[in-house]
């Protein structure tokens, strides 16, 4: 199936796992085997991953986790997906110290030297993945979603349960 067909019809279309795994392998050096056991779907410009299972034929609003956006070049991984798959990355990773980690989590830009290729990187702190950053020309721009930033939680309490 052509990866572009779901752009016209706004529905979930199955994607070959190797299509997704190759992209992640090429950018982050993540072993292809990490993506075994998942099903992948494309809806408009987004790619979704779900634990491999028999999905009943009904109408879905979301299938598993949105893991990447194909809208722009290069494709962009979501912070949620990096927190699941990113720890297996062997390249294009940046490790932060505690002060820079907090600045990154506030959604700000850091001036930092790295030998990463320009583009999206996996940002680590104390061996744990914080999320997605955009690196180029000595700058790391935080891609942490607004509702998950350190300073913005007060305005975004809506996700808490009773």
């Amino acid at each position: 199936m052509s990866p572009s067909s779901s752009r016209i019809r706004n529905i979930f279309e199955p994607l070959e796992p190797s299509y997704v795994a190759d992209l992640w392998n090429s950018r982050f050096g993540i072993s292809l085997s990490v993506f075994l056991g998942y099903l992948f779907f494309r809806k408009a410009q987004s790619v979704w991953a779900v634990n491999d299972n028999c999905l009943p034929r009904i109408s879905y609003e979301a299938i598993g986790m949105r893991i990447m956006n194909l809208k722009d070049r290069p494709w962009k991984p979501t912070t949620s997906a990096l927190q699941v798959f990113g720890r297996h990355a062997t390249k294009n990773v940046i490790h932060l110290d505690s002060i820079n980690a907090m600045i990154f989590l506030e959604g700000k830009t850091l001036v930092i030297e790295s030998n990463c290729e320009p583009g999206y990187v996996v940002v680590f702190y104390r061996g744990e993945v914080l999320g997605c950053g955009l690196y180029s020309h000595g700058k790391l721009v935080s891609q942490i979603p607004k509702e998950r930033r350190m300073a913005s939680v007060v305005e975004n309490g809506a996700c808490e349960d009773q």
Partner: peptide
């Protein structure tokens, strides 16, 4: 659905499909 999705993704849930 927005908070539901947001919570599932933040918590690393990979076995949930959402219907409406």
């Amino acid at each position: 659905v927005t908070p539901l999705r947001s919570n599932c993704e933040r918590l690393g849930v990979m076995n949930v499909a959402i219907t409406r």
